[in-house]
Design a protein around this nucleic acid. Structure first.
Lengths: 201, 201
DNA sequence: AAGTTCAGTGACCCTCGGTTATCAAAGTGC
DNA sequence: GCACTTTGATAACCGAGGGTCACTGAACTT
């Protein structure tokens, strides 16, 4: 349903529009900040009226949640690819964390960590948590694998270690802003190496 | 100026009221969430009208910043006390980080990490950054001291290490919510130990 | 051709942050 | 004691922006 081929059905068209709204909103939220972006502005950029947006989301907050989900999907994909590389578990974990950081630091992804947290209401919590859990699980499995193949310390606690590692890594996403001199990739490599330091065998 | 003795001067009275407004706002922001708290509600709780608040802050955002500063001061005090204990640098760092976490997890402090970030405008940035820098500096000095007295690894990079450690620690503040079974103090001890794991000599 | 679905519109409402004219009380100078 | 200023609060108001609704016109169905 992501690609239009032949004669588009109504459902395809609807989904395409929804995705386009989310894409547009993502960019604007990310670059201008959630509360400075009006629905009017998003609608204008898409060439429709504000009311039209409500055919595709139930509220401004819901729109943010859709952006969040789309972003999380992208993040999960990037990490999954990196974790699937060759090498021992420690090396793959390293690659996965670097992919996580680099993806997270994309300009249009930064709102994920800056704006989303306080906006998550109890209703949205489930879907947001699902993506987060998926990522957490991927990393934790890789920690387990590292213990198994001997590339990580045998006595580490996967639950606690993933909390520490993800904390350190996510923190970059909160404070990093363009123009700090170092490229995202360089920062990713440094931070990842440092975060794993206590766990390598 | 924090205590009223004898006949209150106008300045004392004014400062007392300002602090009371900030205290009230802090609790409400922390428990209900910044954007769900109206100035009307804060004013009502204090028994005044909304317009009266504007004698003590220039905007809702400014009020949040005042809450932030007051909270940061509390945090700095708690950490400073803990860092001043007896023991080698590693032990004092441990105590400082635990104090940091426990203070941060107080119910009326959680908004600091959840709501403040996106609201910081370029104008406020300086004062906010000042408190943050002070904390960062305190921890970094303790890392240096640890290298000097041999309780921490000699080859650690203080700048990078403090980024990792504070990341892991701050992350707790973002995700922790009451009712998770463990007490803040227990979590603080666990997380701190784990975060320092790679740096102890 | 008539009926049905549905995306989109424009006018509207309401909440809430912020402003302003005004007032009463406390402080000050004569 | 009396004019004058200063200060802190109020009530009334404004405008931006999120959200709603009755309606329209086009596309699909029968």
């Amino acid at each position: 349903m992501t690609e239009l081929t032949g004669f588009p059905t109504r459902k395809q068209l609807r989904d395409l529009k929804r995705r386009e709204i989310v894409r547009c909103a993502t960019v604007k939220f990310g670059t201008e900040g959630y509360e400075h972006v009006t629905l009017e502005a998003i609608a204008a950029e898409l060439g429709v009226t504000k009311a039209a947006l409500y055919n595709y989301c139930s509220s401004k907050n819901d729109l943010l949640m859709q952006c969040y989900e789309m972003g999380m999907d992208r993040l999960v994909d990037a990490v999954k690819t990196a974790l699937g590389r060759d090498g021992n578990a420690a090396a793959r974990l390293d690659a996965g964390l670097q992919a996580y950081i680099v993806t997270m630091l994309r300009p249009d992804m930064q709102y994920l960590w800056s704006y989303t947290r306080p906006m998550v209401t109890s209703g949205d919590k489930r879907s947001v948590q699902t993506s987060r859990d998926k990522l957490d699980m991927m990393f934790r499995e890789m920690l387990d694998a590292g213990i198994a193949d001997g590339s990580l310390r045998a006595d580490l606690d996967p639950k606690l270690a993933s909390l520490i590692i993800l904390g350190a890594v996510n923190w970059v996403g909160i404070w990093f802003r363009e123009g700090g001199g170092q490229s995202p990739a360089a920062i990713a490599a440094e931070v990842t190496r440092e975060a794993l330091l206590g766990y390598l065998s």
